[in-house]
Design a binder for these strands. Structure first.
Lengths: 163, 163
DNA sequence: TATTGTTATACTCTATAACTATA
DNA sequence: TATAGTTATAGAGTATAACAATA
């Protein structure tokens, strides 16, 4: 499946003409199809609700990792988020220009730089993580707390390699 | 999170030097983060196992919808897969050039074309859907059958709008 | 007037090669 | 020799505008 980011290309406006229904029952038997649709649905909500902070998913992920891992290096961010180093450069530069992060010399490795949140970055992430929590609850409002917990556990079993 | 398609940019080769672990516990509390990682893990496996058929995820999705909805139109494919019409054109053209699909005049709408599988396309999809099933089982081998069923049900609750 | 399908094109995201400074 | 970070650039994926043919 290939899916929209903006939601703009959704097939139809709320009151659009009826579209002949398509049988998607086979695709719906695939875990990959369902996982992709669910993640895109949540990401769509995420983008809308994070727009006020001017944060994309990857920006939020970087800032969140920096918040919980002060002094993390670009190398570690790339590994944790599966972003290629050349593609992280501009991202980090923009966050630094916005005054959300600062880069300090790494204490033990002269090649590396440790990334830290600035006070503004810390303040922004306090709000952003709260928003992320709220938005997650809204996007998964059809799940009970127990179901949400089960869902997360099963998803982690899928992407976490067996011991 | 932004993640690789090829797996090539994985942080380290199997026996690479140890990397200081990063605390991802916060991100792991988010359904969206876990759903995205799980879907990417399965898609990575999908791409490897479908390479012999020269099918990407979107190609497989299109062919599968055509297989189960003979005569489906481009318009319907776009809506079902959230692909924008201009981006479906080349995709369809390639599948047609490969002899996997054919487009026939739509019986009741002169503007539209109905898409059908050719015998070769039918033969390919029989094998490809079998491969998809096997690959899904392998990619989710840590789940029991009951867990896999639960996972699919909960994912559908996330992306399916409430009645 | 609205819709299907199309072309052309712009924008974003992801990937590869090559370089520097340090280990 | 290998690694962290960077630059430049190529390629894939996704978006918008505008058009012809048909409804």
């Amino acid at each position: 499946m290939a899916t929209a980011k903006s939601g703009r290309q959704r097939a139809a406006a709320p009151d659009a003409l009826p579209v002949e229904p398509v049988d998607t029952s086979y695709l719906r038997t695939l875990v990959g199809y369902n996982a992709r649709r669910a993640s895109l649905a949540i990401i769509e909500t995420f983008m809308v609700r994070m727009a006020p902070y001017d944060l994309k998913v990857v920006d939020f992920s970087v800032l969140s990792l920096v918040a919980h891992n002060p002094g993390i290096t670009s190398r570690q961010l790339c590994a944790a988020l599966s972003v290629l180093p050349p593609n992280l450069v501009g991202l980090i530069a923009t966050l630094e220009r916005r005054g959300l992060i600062e880069r300090l010399p790494h204490p033990s490795d002269g090649r590396a730089m440790g990334v830290h949140l600035t006070p503004q970055g810390t303040e922004l992430m306090l709000q952003a993580e709260k928003t992320a929590f709220d938005l997650e609850m809204d996007a998964t409002s059809r799940l009970t707390d127990a179901e949400r917990k089960t869902l997360i556990r099963l998803l982690q079993k899928v992407y976490t390699p067996a011991d």
